[in-house]
Nucleic acid binder design. Structure first.
Lengths: 340, 340
DNA sequence: TTGAAAGCGATACCAT
DNA sequence: ATGGTATCGCTTTCAA
């Protein structure tokens, strides 16, 4: 109001206006570290309001050495699975007065390198890798003092602690649930994993079948998306002895699987039952609504962020239990009015 | 390697190591504004590498007066509709070497206030409001010099330019497509809008029915989510003369509508056809795949960001054309193998 | 082509 | 309780 449109207001303007020193302005703004007479404080506050003063965040960050920024790297955001994590991270971050600097790699090596570098160059206080990096050196990018964690991973990369869902447990829950429904031919549709990574989902599915002495159908490995699920189901159904139940390794895959089933006029769950892993929101409104094993997104994000601020725990692995969410696609009940 | 673990490396360390002044280091790092002898440059570059030097972004931002941060405010990220925008914004921002500071309001007044303030206090260069703020004063938060735009809005708020899809056009395309299929009883399911906002979607739907002299069914206004669509469809179907086609005002609503239809064992599109608005990715794999009118997310985000960096155009409104994406739910064809 | 040095805006110690 | 001031790391003008 009072000031012109030229130069941003600084604390010096405020100090002059309130007739105090810049130090006092700082004490008022930050509520310390020295006390200020309530009368003086009032004057300063008023000057701040009148001048429309906003502390310069860069100057503050330079002085304090902390930006309050958390870099978050995800492969994609159009996949509801990662949206769930981002949402949970956002909540946990806000609770700590931090903001999230979001980066999407699009699973492209070039983009990946670019965004990680940019995060570091923007001075993030910490990093959350909610992704699998193609160039593994990038996990260590920037100042080694920047704390970092892996989210949605069960194996640490070097010193970087990992926070992941207990996928083996989840896959077991899903498969056993299908067994409980009396199925004997239970297929698996999932995406590929790097050679050096154990596939907990597939292994657990296989283990359950072996324990129950059920036929071990060769798994359909396609891609980690809806289309992958679609392809995978086709492959399974084209076999001489198709499965009567399918365990889909992710919700997106399950959506694709069900689409393929519908196209062939197969009834779900009567002809083929489906259970998936992840527990994203969209599964409640698929047709039929999907029985899925849910990851505790909130708890995982919270723990990851807590680890970032707490004392470092190099190379740690934290596994989170998964919970079966029973709906209609497994055959437990008809799709009812009440969802969720 | 050489240095201890104590203090971050600064340009002074690099200068000392390379036997040059700090100015030269700066010239090398920024490729200007003064030329540097290639030999000297090499020495500096080497010192940088050896010391593992990273310029302090806060200091740089303080000096240059720009953080390279774009604040993005969305109501929620679990809704694929907003993920589409965030994804498009991310691409456009990276093209300009900017990073996005993501904030989610959860449509809560308190959170909304908190996140907008935090964005401003973090020194964003510009703001994208991809949301409707409860507290409209917040649109003006912070330094008035921070450029800002409205994305997904067709009406400017004060000086803030708006970039939105031509919803009237979209709704018209959808409704007329249903009319083209021979439907005469076409219902509408949508969410509520603030009293002072025109509902372009509903108005256009109504206009088309009037033009064709078709019966005007009372619209079902519920909530802007899957459950809202579910409820809305129930309401429509419970009437003495239910519609044979439904225009859903958003993809999420359409998903809910179709779920309700399935529950009543109504065939889509044979018994009731459905067309929706938005064109998010999940519609391709719903059952049946959804015919929808798509917003050009990429173009909208690109234009919004361009407006942020270009000369200000106060109070401008930019409307983007929508395109019909024909799939199976309207009755055009059976759900085929090939999905978009 | 290179160096010295004056800020950018805020913090907080050391005086008073 | 308050004021003066060195400092954070970098950019860039001005001089050499």
């Amino acid at each position: 109001m009072t000031s012109g449109e030229s130069r941003p207001t600084t604390r010096a303007d405020v100090a002059r206006r309130a007739g105090v020193s810049t130090a006092v302005v700082s004490y008022v703004v930050n509520d310390g570290p020295r006390p200020v007479a309530s009368q003086t404080r009032r004057r300063v506050l008023e000057a701040i309001r009148e001048l429309g003063y906003h502390p310069n965040p860069s100057a503050r960050a330079l002085k304090t050495g902390s930006t309050g920024l958390i870099g978050v790297v995800v492969p994609e955001i159009l996949n509801a699975y990662f949206s769930e994590f981002v949402d949970a991270i956002d909540v946990a971050a806000r609770r700590r007065a931090s903001s999230i600097l979001l980066s999407i790699t699009h699973e492209d090596a070039g983009t990946e390198k670019e965004v990680v570098a940019s995060l570091v160059n923007r001075g993030v206080d910490s990093l959350i890798f909610n992704c699998r990096l193609v160039n593994t050196e990038l996990y260590q990018a920037g100042d080694p003092r920047i704390p970092r964690v892996l989210l949605d991973r069960s194996t640490p990369v070097g010193e970087i602690p990992a926070f992941g869902a207990d996928l083996a447990m989840g896959a077991r829950l899903a498969t056993e649930h299908l067994v409980g429904h009396g199925h004997t031919r239970i297929g698996y549709v999932g995406g590929p994993l790097p050679d050096d990574h154990a596939d907990f989902r597939r292994d657990a599915w296989q283990t359950v079948l072996e324990e129950r002495e059920l036929p071990l159908l060769s798994p359909a490995i396609t891609a980690w998306d809806r289309n992958g699920g679609h392809q995978g189901a086709q492959e399974l159904l084209d076999r001489p002895e198709p499965p009567t139940a399918i365990f889909a390794a992710s919700d997106q895959i399950a959506i694709g699987v069900m689409h393929a089933l519908h196209q062939r006029r197969l009834r779900i769950p009567d002809d083929v039952a489906v259970v998936s892993l992840d527990g994203t929101a969209e599964t409640a409104y698929s047709w039929p609504s999907l029985t899925t094993v849910r990851q505790p997104f909130e708890a995982m994000a919270e723990a990851a962020i807590a680890a970032l601020t707490g004392p470092p725990e190099p190379g740690t692995r934290t596994l989170f239990p998964m919970t079966l969410q029973v709906r209609a696609s497994c055959g437990c009940h008809q799709d009812q009015e009440s969802l969720e």
